[in-house]
Simulated assay, not measured.
Amino acid sequence: MSEIDTHTALNNGVKMPLLGFGVFQTPPEETRDSVTEALETGYRLIDTAAAYGNEREVGQALASSGLGRDEVFIETKVWISDYGYDDTLHAFDKSAGKLGVEVIDLFILHQALPSAFARTIDAYRALETLLEDGKVRAIGVSNFMPDHLARLMERASVVPAVNQVEVHPYFAQPEVQRANADRAILTQAWSPIGGITAYRDTGTGSVFEDPVIVEIAEAHGKSPAQVMLRWHLEAGRSAIPKSVKPHRIAENFDVFDFALTAEQTAAIDGLDTGVRGGPDPADVTLEDFGRDIPEA
């Protein structure tokens, strides 16, 4: 059985767990308990965002965990409403205050905001300043397509360490993954098990019920979710599944005791529909997606 490193070195040398725990769409009142459960299970990477409205509860779980600050890798994201150099510096203060930390391990721009890309550049310049000042250990982006990365790198001094994008068997975004790899940017998969959509319009149904994945899962005595997470990790991607159910949280972490065959990997690779489940990054504008991020 092939072994997988549980951690990876980012392009600036910082070590990060490959498998993490996400809290997208987790209500604040459920976040503390779910993150506590995840930490007790063994997760050491927690992903949140200012726009999720649950950074404070993530911080509460971290503070009560008994774990040292250096034992848990925390990443969070700046929302587009806080783009701009000074506003993004302040966004760090808001996020760090809610999380109850002085240093954020990975600080990410949540969207490319192509309709106001100058603000995106200014926001990224703020991330570079925070990195230089030691307030963050690594910086990254999310939902950046290859053209967004190219435009960013025309102005940026620091290559993003991570690009967090939608990746799962039904939407693999190979061109984005190649653009990331060409720049030594780690691809981190949000919605790594395709949970955001049932793909009704394609007629494929839920990825959890896909016969290819179900057959592979049965062959290994694992669940479809575990097969998909293993697929990510064997490809060298980071994945951040989410759940509020303790048995699912534990199940999603139990992916290090089996390996896919080359034929199984190829079969999963072949499921890509090219159909996006989340918003098209090109359509994200301040007018439609802007929201105030509270101070506390």
Rank of each mutant, 00 (worst) to 15 (best):
G140Q: 03
T187R: 07
R200E: 15
A116Q: 13
N180A: 13
R178E: 15
I196L: 14
N143Y: 05
H148F: 12
A198M: 14
T129G: 01
R155V: 03
P146H: 06
T129F: 00
R151G: 08
N163F: 04
L130G: 04
Y199R: 13
S95H: 06
D105S: 07
P174D: 10
I104P: 00
R155Y: 10
R200C: 09
A172F: 07
R125I: 01
R200T: 14
L127R: 00
V136R: 02
M153S: 10
L186V: 15
Q177G: 09
T88D: 07
G195N: 10
E128A: 04
K135C: 06
A161H: 02
V159L: 08
G97P: 05
R151V: 07
A123E: 07
D93Q: 14
S95R: 02
V101P: 00
P174Q: 10
T197V: 12
Y124S: 03
T197E: 12
F92V: 03
R119S: 14
A184Y: 11
L149R: 02
V141D: 00
P146R: 07
D133C: 07
I108M: 05
I139E: 00
D147V: 13
V165R: 00
K94Y: 04
N143R: 09
E175T: 14
A181Y: 09
H110N: 08
A138H: 06
V176Q: 03
I139N: 00
A179Q: 03
E102F: 08
T197P: 02
F92D: 01
I121T: 11
R183D: 06
T202Q: 12
P114I: 07
E154L: 14
Q111N: 15
L127P: 00
V103L: 03
